[in-house]
Structures are given as structure tokens and as C-alpha cells.
């Protein structure tokens, strides 16, 4: 069981509010994606879960334990969370083995067990042949896997990923998407994934949270977000879309120039309709 419960979270930097009041429960083994343009507050959200930032108000619980609240604050090192950073943050002065073994050394795990567990996890991320390499002898994708292995090696309750694929080339990005998803299933771990890439969000997630300017726009499954966007921003941010203005009444929308489009929405009156290209049928 590893759920994350966020209750009435807000975050201010000085007078600037970067996260507006937000509550949500991420359930066990769920793959949650925080999606939005840069500067929307998604990374701040992730860093609050990790414990690098403290919410201005509100409470964060991992399982039943409060990790951040009015008079409680558990620092990141005591939260038992795995995290992959955008810049990988693979320590340049340690080889692959030592990078991955680090969390276990902190936990004072016995040496022989460290070796086995590191070898196993490197196997899982396909890095076994590189165990004694230094980071500067690895490609970007390989460093990425080191970071992933290090985040997973201590069997954390939660795995946080901060735009992990944004520094990889397109081809590799695609492969890594599947691998991350695979690993999530294999380890049965709750994942919070931050990205500005809608394809990643839609392909990998159980649920997507769309952010804009610190405000949560919509929380839903990828399919629902695509087919029933909550507002213009969400519709525009995900997938290809055109907007048309008109008046809706029983079964059709009357456009300004007199044309009529049939529709099955419930709304009436002045509306903005989002039209997906694949839903247009030409007779």
C-alpha cells in the first residue's frame, strides 16, 4: 500500500502563488502524470511530495503517515521515496555500482546483499555490462538508467520522475517510455511523473493532472482528458484541435456565418466547440 494524499495544498514564493489550493489522492500502484507547460507548477508539486519544498499550507500524507503538515515536516531523506531528476544527477565521482549502491549503504545493508541487489536492479534496467564504468563513459540514455536504478534499488514506496526523458533523443525516448511503464508494473510501485509532453502523458498514465499557471485544470484518465477536455486550455494543450464559436441548441451548433454543425452535447447558448480533426466526417 502506497497512496499519496494531498489535502488543500498551496505554495507561495513570497507573495506569488505558484500552486492554488489542490487536493487529490493518488492510489497505490497508480501511474499519475503531472502535465503542463513550463512554469505551470508541476515540478513544484513534485518537489513538495519529495520534500525539497514545503507547502505553504495543506498536508501531504504517504500512506497514513503525514510527511508534511502544519507542524510536521519529514525531510526527503526519511521519506523512502525514489526520484529520477531531469538532469539525471548521477554522481560524476562514483562509478555505476557505487551510484546505485548509495541508498543501500545509507541504510547500512550488508555488503553481500548490496552487491546482489545492485546486480539485480542493473539487470532490470539493462546496465549489467556497465557496472564499473564512470558516468562520463556512459551515454545520456545509460546515465538515465543509472538514475532509475538508483531510485528503485531500495524498494521505495513511491517513485518520482521529473521530466526524465526530456534530454533524450526521440527514438530513445520512445523505448524508455515502455521500459519505465514495464518497471512500474514489475515493481508494483506508485509513480508520479512530471512532463510537458502530452504523448508521454497519454501513453503511460493511469490518470493525468493538467496544470496551468498553478491551477489544476483537470484530473482524469488520458482518454477522458482527450475526449472530454474540461476547458479550452486542456483541449488545446492535448491533441490537435480547432475552436469554433457559435450558439448551441438541441442537437446542433449554429455558427456565426449561418452554418450548422450537429453535436450531442448537453450545453445550450453561446459555446466554444473544440473540434478534433479525426472526428470530422466529410459527406
Amino acid at each position: 500500500m502506497s497512496s499519496i494524499t494531498l489535502t488543500n495544498i498551496t505554495k507561495y514564493y513570497g507573495d506569488v502563488q505558484v500552486i492554488q489550493t489542490f487536493s487529490e489522492v493518488f492510489s497505490d500502484k497508480e501511474f499519475i502524470t503531472l502535465l503542463g507547460p513550463s512554469g505551470c507548477g508541476k515540478t513544484t508539486m513534485l518537489r513538495m511530495i519529495a520534500g525539497f519544498e514545503r507547502p505553504t499550507t495543506g498536508e501531504i500524507k504517504i500512506d497514513d503517515k503525514i510527511v508534511s503538515g502544519l507542524d510536521v515536516f519529514v525531510p526527503p531523506n526519511l521519506r523512502n521515496i525514489g526520484m529520477v531528476f531531469q538532469s539525471y544527477a548521477v554522481w560524476p565521482h562514483m562509478n555505476v555500482f557505487n551510484n546505485v549502491a548509495y541508498p543501500l549503504k545509507i541504510q547500512k545493508v550488508a555488503k553481500s546483499e548490496i552487491t546482489t541487489r545492485v546486480e539485480n536492479i542493473l539487470e532490470a534496467v539493462h546496465l549489467s555490462p556497465y557496472i564499473s564504468r564512470m558516468p562520463n563513459e556512459l551515454s545520456g540514455g545509460q546515465q538515465q538508467r543509472v538514475a532509475l536504478a538508483r531510485a528503485l534499488v531500495s524498494n521505495p514506496r513511491v517513485l518520482l520522475l521529473d521530466e526524465p526523458l526530456s534530454n533524450l533523443d526521440a527514438k530513445l525516448r520512445e523505448t524508455m517510455r515502455y521500459e519505465i511503464k514495464d518497471i512500474q508494473k514489475k515493481f508494483g510501485i506508485t509513480v508520479v511523473y512530471v512532463t510537458h509532453d502530452q504523448t508521454e502523458a497519454i501513453e503511460m498514465s493511469d490518470r493525468v493532472i493538467v496544470f496551468n499557471r498553478g491551477i489544476v485544470q483537470q484530473v482524469d484518465t488520458p482518454l477522458n482528458i482527450y475526449s472530454h477536455p474540461a476547458n479550452e486550455f486542456v483541449a488545446d494543450f492535448i491533441g490537435k484541435v480547432s475552436f469554433v464559436h457559435g450558439r448551441a441548441s438541441d442537437g446542433y451548433i449554429a455558427l456565426d456565418d449561418g452554418q450548422k454543425i450537429s453535436c450531442n452535447g448537453r450545453k445550450t447558448g453561446d459555446v466554444i466547440a473544440a473540434v478534433r480533426p479525426e472526428s470530422v466526417t466529410v459527406f
Binding site: 521515496i81 541508498p103 538508483r150
Partner: peptide
């Protein structure tokens, strides 16, 4: 931060 999240004070 990676050291912190790995459990190190």
C-alpha cells in the same frame, strides 16, 4: 538532492 532522496541526511 539525489543524495537526500537516497536517504542521506
Amino acid at each position: 538532492e539525489a543524495a537526500l532522496i537516497s536517504g542521506a541526511e
